[in-house]
């Protein structure tokens, strides 16, 4: 295999991994605060269509991304109001958000089908970004570097900052956090908003970088992979990064292997691999004596402060 092909494979893997990583980072923070939002797919689609529409209209990718993140956050706030304020069932509301997102993104996106925009490509000078070897470092969309920075940012936030500690406390023991005076609902609102913004960013990656086009259900189920990834990573950002690239590799290496003329595993099995890996990790976690890796204790439990 020549090094151009290896570089191209690496770049495809990172390309396929980045949106999952972004969405999963958001969901990780949401789940750490004790909320389960199954609406990632829907929020991503809203982000994808809004990002595409704004970029097409204004010609500014950054503006498209910002407004897309805002739109996804708005849809996440709808979820937050239903589940946190009205204490609706989180699983059902999250699924409803996904269905809502699929529907409204198709409706909003109808005028934009068949339109094209410029790809949101690397900001590095062409001598680096299109260099045959160096492009493996410089050739990505800015969103790829943003996703890496955000991974470290989230990791630092959860481990080292006071706010991160409060967020984890809310997720592990809402009643204790409440009794020492923290606003459980407020913290969770903030976490869900962050999750929405990240899903919007992930959606933009599809419609501005990966394909770049809008068509209905553009994300084709990647939101569920992001959800599985959070569990796979055992709610740890560093492992999330590795997991995202592993899942991305599983999804794309198959294509490269088959295009090169050899096939080593049934494609159906390969498609199921992220989910299988998640189940295996879950089983391993539950086998461990220490519960240090397990899910946040209050995950998906509605919180009603006693008055």
């Amino acid at each position: 295999m020549s090094d151009t092909i290896i570089i191209s494979i690496i770049m495809t893997v990172i390309g396929a991994s980045t949106p999952i990583l972004l969405a999963a980072l958001g969901e990780l923070v949401v789940e750490k605060s004790g909320v389960l939002n199954l609406g990632i797919e829907g929020m991503m689609l809203i982000g994808a269509v809004v990002g595409f529409a704004v970029t097409l209209t204004t010609g500014f990718h950054l503006l498209g991304i910002v407004i897309a993140m805002f739109a996804s956050t708005l849809s996440a706030m709808l979820f937050a109001y239903l589940t946190l304020t009205l204490t609706a069932n989180q699983v059902a509301t999250g699924l409803a958000l996904t269905i809502f997102g699929i529907g409204i993104s198709s409706l909003m996106g109808e005028p934009y089908v068949g339109k094209t925009i410029e790809i949101f490509s690397s900001w590095f000078p062409a001598s680096l970004a299109e260099h045959p070897q160096l492009r493996v470092i410089f050739g990505y969309s800015p969103l790829v570097y943003v996703s890496l920075a955000l991974t470290f940012g989230v990791s630092y936030f959860l481990k080292k900052t006071r706010a991160g500690l409060i967020l984890r406390a809310v997720g592990e023991s809402d009643i204790s956090a409440h009794s020492i005076g923290y606003s459980v609902i407020g913290v969770r609102y903030a976490a869900v908003a962050f999750g929405g913004a990240m899903a919007g960013l992930a959606g933009c990656y599809f419609s501005l970088v990966l394909t770049p086009l809008w068509s209905e259900e553009l994300t084709a189920g990647r939101g569920w992979i992001a959800l599985a990834l959070v569990v796979f990573a055992a709610w740890k950002p560093s492992r999330l990064l590795l997991g995202a690239y592993l899942f991305g590799a599983i999804m794309t290496l198959e294509l490269h292997a088959k295009a090169a003329g050899f096939s080593f595993i049934a494609p159906e099995l390969l498609a199921a691999m992220p989910y299988l890996a998640t189940i295996v990790v879950l089983a391993l976690i539950s086998l461990r004596k220490s519960s240090g890796l397990a899910a946040p204790a209050c995950l998906a439990k509605p919180f009603k402060p006693s008055t």
Partner: peptide, 25 residues
């Protein structure tokens, strides 16, 4: 003709990746 099966009728990101893989070959 280099055929690449994506096992889906409609999966835009995967179709894009498949095109890249085929072009690389």
């Amino acid at each position: 003709t280099n055929v690449l099966w994506v096992n889906s009728w409609y999966d835009p990101p995967k179709e894009a990746d498949a095109a890249t893989a085929l072009i690389d070959q």
